[in-house]
Design a binder for these strands. Structure first.
Length: 274
DNA sequence: ATGTTTGTTCCGAT
DNA sequence: CATCGGAACAAACA
C-alpha cells in the first residue's frame, strides 16, 4: 500500500473535497465483499453525511453524521479516486459512493486489483476496538523516544520487523521503514533488544523525518502506479528514496546489500548501517 | 516460466 | 497462553 504518507495525502484531500457531502448512492460490484455485509452497508450509508475525514494508521476513516464510521484500507493495490459520476467505471472498481453537496455531485471510487484491501462500516465502539489494535502513530508528538525504545525492546525480533508491526508503532511500511533505518544508520537485522536509547531516539527522528518528507512530496508512486492520489496524480517521493531500490549508497557509494527479511525486500548499506 | 510487489491475517512451531 | 515467521490472500508486470 500506500504507507502513511500516501494514506495521509488521500485523507487530507478527501477532507477538503467531500466533508459535508451527503452519500446518495452505494454501488457495490458483484461479488465484492465489504464488512460487515453489503445490506448493512447500503442501509447505513445512504442518506448519511460525511462529517470528518481522518486516519487510523493506514486506514482512511470517514466519520459520518450518524453513529457510524466508514473505513478504507488500501493494502497493496487499493486506490480511492474522485471522479465525475458520469465517467466510465475505473479499472478494478469495487465500490462507488455517489456524494453530493449544494448541487455538486461526485463519485468516490474504491478500486483494488488484488483485493487485499478492505472497506468497512463500524460503530463507534467497534472503531475504538480497531484503534486499540494499533500502536501510537509514528507522527504523534505523544510518542516519546523512551516509549518508542520500550516498545521496541520488548520484541524478540529484528528492528525492521518490529517497525513494520502496526501494533508496535503505526504508519511505517516497507519502503519508509527501510529508508528510516538507513537515515538512522541502523542495520535492519539488529535485534530490538540490542538497541540503546540513543539509537531508538535517532530511529524515531529518522522515521518522523522520512514520513514528513513523504507527505511533503504527496507520497511515493512506483512504476506500476498502484498509488495515485484521489485526483489520479502520482506522488513525487520516489525521486527522494535514500536506499530503497538503490544499487549504491548515496553517502559512501558502497554497493547496497539486498536481503529478504520476513519476506520483505530490504535494502541497506553494509558500511553505514552497523 | 519465474520472481517481484507499497499490507495484513492466519496458522503451525516453539 | 504468547510470540514469531512463513504461507496465504491474488493480480500485474518484467
Amino acid at each position: 500500500m500506500p504507507e502513511l504518507p500516501e494514506v495521509h495525502t488521500i485523507a487530507s484531500d478527501l477532507k477538503t473535497t467531500i466533508e459535508g457531502f451527503r452519500i446518495d448512492d452505494v454501488e457495490l460490484e458483484k461479488g465484492y465483499k465489504v464488512y460487515p455485509t453489503a445490506d448493512y452497508f447500503a442501509k447505513t450509508l445512504v442518506g448519511a453525511h460525511v462529517d470528518k475525514v481522518g486516519r487510523i494508521g493506514k486506514n482512511i476513516v470517514l466519520k459520518l453524521d450518524s453513529p457510524n464510521f466508514l473505513t478504507f484500507h488500501l493494502a497493496m493495490t487499493g486506490r480511492l479516486l474522485l471522479k465525475d459520476p458520469t465517467t466510465p467505471k475505473a479499472l478494478h472498481q469495487r465500490l462507488q459512493l455517489t456524494l453530493s453537496n449544494k448541487g455538486e455531485s461526485v463519485a468516490l471510487r474504491f478500486c483494488d486489483a488484488r483485493m487485499f484491501g478492505k472497506v468497512s462500516v463500524w460503530t463507534g465502539q467497534e472503531l475504538r476496538k480497531l484503534k486499540a489494535k494499533y500502536g501510537p502513530d509514528v507522527l504523534t508528538q505523544e510518542l516519546l523516544p523512551q516509549d518508542f525504545a520500550a516498545r521496541l525492546k520488548i520484541k524478540n525480533t529484528s528492528v525492521k520487523n518490529a517497525l513494520l508491526e502496526q501494533a508496535t508503532v503505526a504508519g511505517l511500511g516497507n519502503i519508509y521503514a527501510t529508508d528510516a533505518l538507513w537515515l538512522a544508520k541502523i542495520h535492519p537485522e539488529t535485534k530490538t533488544r540490542d538497541l540503546d536509547l540513543q539509537q531508538a531516539t535517532d530511529l524515531l527522528k529518522a522515521a518522523k523525518d522520512i514520513l514528513a518528507e513523504g507527505i511533503a512530496h504527496r507520497g511515493s508512486t512506483l512504476p506500476d502506479e498502484a498509488y495515485v492520489d484521489v485526483f489520479g496524480q502520482p506522488g513525487h517521493h520516489q525521486k527522494y528514496f535514500r536506499i530503497y531500490g538503490k544499487t549504491f549508497c548515496p553517502v559512501c557509494t558502497t554497493r547496497v546489500d539486498y536481503k529478504k527479511l520476513n519476506g520483505r525486500g530490504t535494502y541497506f548499506c553494509p558500511s553505514c548501517q552497523k
